[in-house]
């Protein structure tokens, strides 16, 4: 037998499970994020990567070695690394004379680069500098301040990227006492993007809803926009498609009134009135003569048919 191109066939049950998990799913889990460094990386950016990785735990992977990668020139190596670690989100820190303190945030669709944005880390104060801290792994509240977030394509995309990066995962329920972290993204008129992170303290307010107080926990980062690669429109559309199974189909013709009764509207097809059996009356009955004529008619037809059949036999 000639050689078949290899179809990866798992040898163990566990391997099979792993391969099955890697295949496209209808409902996807939280996105993993990859944090790594380019050719050179400044201490500032490295510390920032570490702090953001802490926020992303346990869905974050941090690589400690340097990588000879420049994403904007060639995205292939990043795609490969992301595929290897199964992480559709990445954060790449680098430092060069031309672009000091550089941070690239990007994401993949099917391990092909979808979009990415390059940021300059102007100033950074790490988690360690602040006294307060929170339990890691909680779902944060995301607050976007400033009218600029809606105005330019880059910032719109950056907002989507930030939400994708930090929203952790889609949940149905949330514990009220578990709300203890707020991430604030501010796009100021002078072109800066200020990232602040606070701990939420819920205090009594005399009513059911508590009074919110905030404590800064860091990191405190000031970004400026650099280069960006916006997503291909078709690819983005394809990536944002919802599977058929998850689409909500509206139930038609069902309504509920004030008393909580459910009403349904049923549509009838067209009725065949001609053959419907109505009330039988003596006046509408056929007379004997009519019945006889009908019988004769039927007999004639039958006789004709028989004659034709006999002819055919001959």
């Amino acid at each position: 037998m000639s050689v078949w191109q290899r179809v990866a066939k798992p040898t163990t049950r566990r391997g099979k499970r792993v391969l099955l998990k890697r295949e496209p799913q209808v409902v996807e889990g939280p996105k993993r994020a990859l944090f790594f460094q380019g050719r050179k990386c400044s201490e500032k950016v490295r510390a920032l990567l570490k702090d953001l990785h802490d926020f992303k735990k346990p869905d974050g992977v941090k690589l400690n070695r340097k990588h000879d990668i420049t994403v904007f020139e060639n995205a292939k190596p990043v795609e490969d690394v992301c595929r290897k670690y199964e992480a559709p989100l990445f954060m790449l820190g680098s430092h060069s004379k031309k672009r000091p303190d550089n941070l690239v945030i990007g994401r993949m669709f099917n391990y092909n680069l979808l979009d990415m944005i390059e940021l300059y880390v102007e100033s950074f104060t790490g988690l360690k500098e602040f006294a307060e801290s929170i339990t890691l792994g909680t779902k944060p509240c995301l607050v976007f301040n400033g009218p600029l977030w809606e105005q330019t394509d880059e910032l719109k995309q950056l907002k989507s990227l930030f939400i994708d990066f930090f929203h952790r995962e889609t949940v149905e329920n949330i514990r009220l006492q578990g709300l203890e972290h707020t991430l604030s993204f501010n796009a100021t008129p002078d072109g800066k993007i200020l990232l602040r992170s606070y701990k939420i303290i819920l205090k009594k307010s005399g009513v059911k809803t508590p009074r919110v107080e905030l404590d800064e926990i860091g990191p405190r980062v000031d970004f400026t926009l650099r280069r960006s690669k916006l997503p291909d429109e078709d690819l983005m559309k394809e990536a944002c498609r919802k599977p058929k199974e998850l689409r909500v189909i509206k139930k038609q013709n069902i309504s509920t009134d004030e008393l909580g009764n459910t009403h349904g509207r049923v549509h009838m097809g067209k009725q065949n009135i001609k053959t419907i059996q109505t009330r039988k009356m003596k006046g509408l009955k056929k007379t004997a003569a009519e019945r006889k004529a009908e019988k004769l008619k039927i007999l004639k037809v039958v006789n004709n048919n028989e004659a034709v059949a006999e002819n055919g036999d001959r």
């Binding site: 496209p24 669709f109 099917n110 939400i163 498609r241 058929k244």
Partner: peptide, 25 residues
């Protein structure tokens, strides 16, 4: 709702459209 000694709220469906990781199977 009350689930195991904790008060939880039922969140509505996410409005923000985020891209998927992989194509629809």
């Amino acid at each position: 709702e009350r689930v195991e000694e904790a008060i939880v709220v039922k969140l509505p469906i996410q409005k923000t459209r985020l891209p998927r990781m992989k194509p629809i199977p």
